[in-house]
């Protein structure tokens, strides 16, 4: 016989009360297709490519997101515009592989790639889940409405060096005069 007879008896009878009480409670289940759960604001699901406040693509095709991706679902081809600004010629995310870890958004220096709360990606054709750049690009800035990478870094693309607000002219390194 156990030394804890009374504890054991209580432990045997208590579940009966708990389950009986639960029987008359409302289930916690969300009946999915009819009811939808209010997802948290920072829920990580489908990825998007955002634009800067001026409407230009944020992505500079630096490959940091594809390097950070643990399942290698991001691929792109970098190219340069006439003014020297880098952009992705094509950009492809394979959502059949994506695990929605969000590491690409952490890696992105220009806040171009961002997550949304849209998780309903299921489909019958896996090839339809390979999203191209047109599918990924959106018309808004995502979760940061003011950030413009080139304005911050001042690389002479949108304006020549030193011409941006809060900048001084770059020093002429060949001139020794003080």
């Amino acid at each position: 016989m156990s030394r804890h007879v009374f504890r054991d008896i209580r432990g045997t009878l208590q579940p009966f009360w708990v389950t009986l009480r639960n029987l008359f409670r409302k289930p916690v289940t969300v009946q999915y297709p009819e009811q939808k759960q209010q997802l948290p604001e920072r829920y990580r699901a489908r990825l998007i490519l955002t634009r800067d406040p001026d409407g230009g693509e944020r992505c500079v095709a630096c490959h940091l997101c594809s390097a950070a991706c643990p399942v290698d679902c991001i691929s792109m081809q970098a190219t340069e515009a006439a003014d020297g600004r880098r952009y992705a010629a094509w950009f492809r995310i394979n959502f059949t592989r994506c695990i929605f870890c969000g590491l690409c958004t952490e890696a992105c220096p220009t806040k171009a790639i961002q997550v949304t709360a849209d998780f309903e990606l299921a489909g019958r054709d896996p090839l339809k889940l390979v999203y191209e750049k047109v599918d990924l690009l959106v018309d808004h800035c995502g979760n940061d409405n003011s950030y413009n990478f080139y304005h911050q870094t001042g690389i002479g693309v949108t304006a020549p060096r030193g011409e941006n607000p809060q900048e001084t002219k770059p020093m002429d390194v060949k001139d020794l005069m003080p």
Partner: peptide
């Protein structure tokens, strides 16, 4: 059904 309700499911 009863097991479900006892476990707060439907």
């Amino acid at each position: 059904k009863i097991l479900g309700r006892m476990q707060l499911r439907y």
